[in-house]
């Protein structure tokens, strides 16, 4: 089967690839680009562990074909640091104890990043609504909500 040529900007780097037409973005990131921060937990869009940003908007990368994102910008958890410094969300997740097993963490942070991209000062209710896109099995979410609140404060 013929491969498809795509050019994607991944974490501020322009990358040219030949991918399978039926390859998901999650596969491309994990298998071709060694960006394993996005996790495959359900593969059916039910859990959010594979969330990355597509042109700044959070998406489930397990539900997207890589050919669909030709020409687009993708940000993964690995691309969140700026000038070698942790993003305030990453800092807040650490400081507030919002990380346990860590398997949902990158998806959770990317969902929160998407929220802060469109709403700099979300209310607690807005944070809860937004992160209700993602499943975490360990934390009970309380410290995740606190971490997102803290990050938005830090960024203000």
């Amino acid at each position: 089967m013929k491969t498809v040529k795509v050019t994607i900007n991944v974490n501020n780097e322009k990358i040219k690839l030949q991918v399978k037409p039926y390859e998901t973005l999650l596969e491309t990131l994990r298998e071709r680009l060694a960006l394993t921060g996005a996790k495959e937990a359900c593969s059916l869009g039910s859990c959010g562990s594979c969330t990355v940003l597509l042109n700044g908007t959070p998406v489930r990368s397990c539900l997207i074909l890589t050919p669909e994102v030709d020409g687009a910008s993708i940000t993964t958890i690995e691309g969140l640091k700026e000038d070698g410094k942790l993003h305030p969300l990453q800092e807040a997740f650490m400081e507030k104890g919002a990380v346990q097993c860590g398997f949902c963490t990158s998806g959770m942070i990317m969902t929160a990043k998407g929220l802060l991209n469109r709403n700099k000062k979300p209310s607690r209710a807005e944070i809860i609504k937004s992160i209700s896109s993602n499943i975490c099995r360990c934390t009970g979410y309380k410290k995740i909500v606190e971490a997102v609140e803290e990050a938005s404060k830090k960024m203000a």
Partner: peptide
């Protein structure tokens, strides 16, 4: 979980 084989066309 991988997808079955198919071609991709953009209209």
């Amino acid at each position: 979980m991988i997808l079955p084989k198919f071609e991709y066309k953009k209209a």
